[in-house]
């Protein structure tokens, strides 16, 4: 609503916007095949490479990062707990279970069908998480993320067991470990549905901010609490499922990005939600570029890089002194 004029958020916005632009351009020109900047648009081969591989890959990273950051933000809002995200609360694992089931029972299903099944399973798994998490005592805020981690772990163990029996461990590795190296034109476009979800989240930003005040305050302000809960769950589940199916799950994005943005700009989502999306995109794209460069010409999957970068950021968030001011 009315964001008090302060230079800090503005500076953050400029840095995030500029950073994403620089990352976007560098991502187009970093890779195994040489793509000199000067000839990129004159040489037809180079242009082909740009359009078929580099641009789709960059867009996929941007879409995945923005989506995951928003999904994390919404989960934190709905759980009223800053330390949950789809990858650590059973959402991603449930999505894996869904897609595994479809792959086993109906191998001919299209990617869209698989995504739908994964979304449904993710919705179910996340709803169960929330039903249980709301019973945990609010006096111990760390129990909720802990419960989520183990809950996800148990579903993950079940998924691994089934995949093992069915000899599908190779697939499982693809779904559980985010990697953009296989992204080509024609194989990532489903992620645009995630962009739609981000837009939906933007549209209901005010309502989400109120949700964060709790059930009683929301109802007191005339909000359809149960309805918003459903919308939030659907956004989270669809984004998580899309990521699992198309590029594989990337951990920590949904956790660290909303926390850092909240620390700098506060929680009035009307003002901050675009920066959450932008920073998520930047973080994932940055990690993907690191993964491409660190062992050049080989590639390290973005999921692995994010496990290190995101894990370190998360521990920093956990042990920093509480923010004031």
């Amino acid at each position: 609503m009315i964001v008090a004029a302060s230079k800090k958020p503005l500076r953050f916005g400029v840095v995030a916007g500029l950073g994403l632009t620089i990352l976007f351009v560098s991502s187009l020109f970093v890779g195994v095949s040489d793509l000199p900047f000067r000839t990129a648009f004159s040489d037809p081969d180079a242009l082909q490479l740009l359009l078929v591989s580099r641009l789709p890959r960059t867009l996929a990273a941007v879409l995945a990062g923005a989506g995951l950051a928003i999904a994390g933000l919404i989960m934190q809002t709905l759980a009223r707990n800053r330390f949950v995200e789809p990858a650590t609360a059973g959402t991603a694992q449930s999505a894996e279970l869904g897609i595994l089931a479809v792959t086993l029972l109906w191998p001919a299903a299209t990617l869209a069908m698989k995504t739908l099944a994964a979304s449904g399973a993710a919705l179910l798994g996340t709803s169960i998480f929330f039903m249980t998490a709301h019973r945990l005592p609010p006096s111990q805020p760390f129990l909720v993320p802990l419960f989520g981690l183990v809950y996800g772990g148990v579903i993950g163990a079940g998924v691994t067991f089934i995949a093992w029996q069915a000899d599908l461990l190779q697939y499982l590795a693809i779904w559980t470990n985010g990697d953009f190296s296989g992204v080509l034109r024609g194989r990532y476009e489903l992620l645009w549905v995630g962009a739609l979800m981000v837009a939906l989240a933007w549209f209901v930003a005010d309502r989400l901010t109120i949700m964060a005040l709790g059930r009683d305050a929301s109802i007191g302000l005339g909000l359809d609490y149960a309805g918003m809960m459903r919308i939030g769950l659907i956004i989270v589940s669809v984004i998580a499922a899309l990521n699992v199916v198309v590029v594989g799950m990337i951990p920590f994005v949904g956790l660290v990005v909303p926390n850092i943005v909240s620390r700098i700009m506060g929680d009035n989502l009307r003002g901050t939600i675009k920066w959450v999306a932008l920073s998520g995109a930047g973080l994932v794209l940055g990690c993907d570029i690191i993964g491409r460069l660190i062992r050049y010409p080989y590639e390290i999957p973005v999921g692995t890089v994010m496990g290190v970068v995101g894990g370190a950021l998360f521990l920093w968030l956990l042990f920093r002194r509480p923010a004031h001011g």
Partner: peptide, 11 residues
């Protein structure tokens, strides 16, 4: 705090 220690450990 117990929960914080566990969470940090898991991460």
């Amino acid at each position: 705090d117990m929960g914080l220690m566990l969470l940090a450990g898991v991460v």
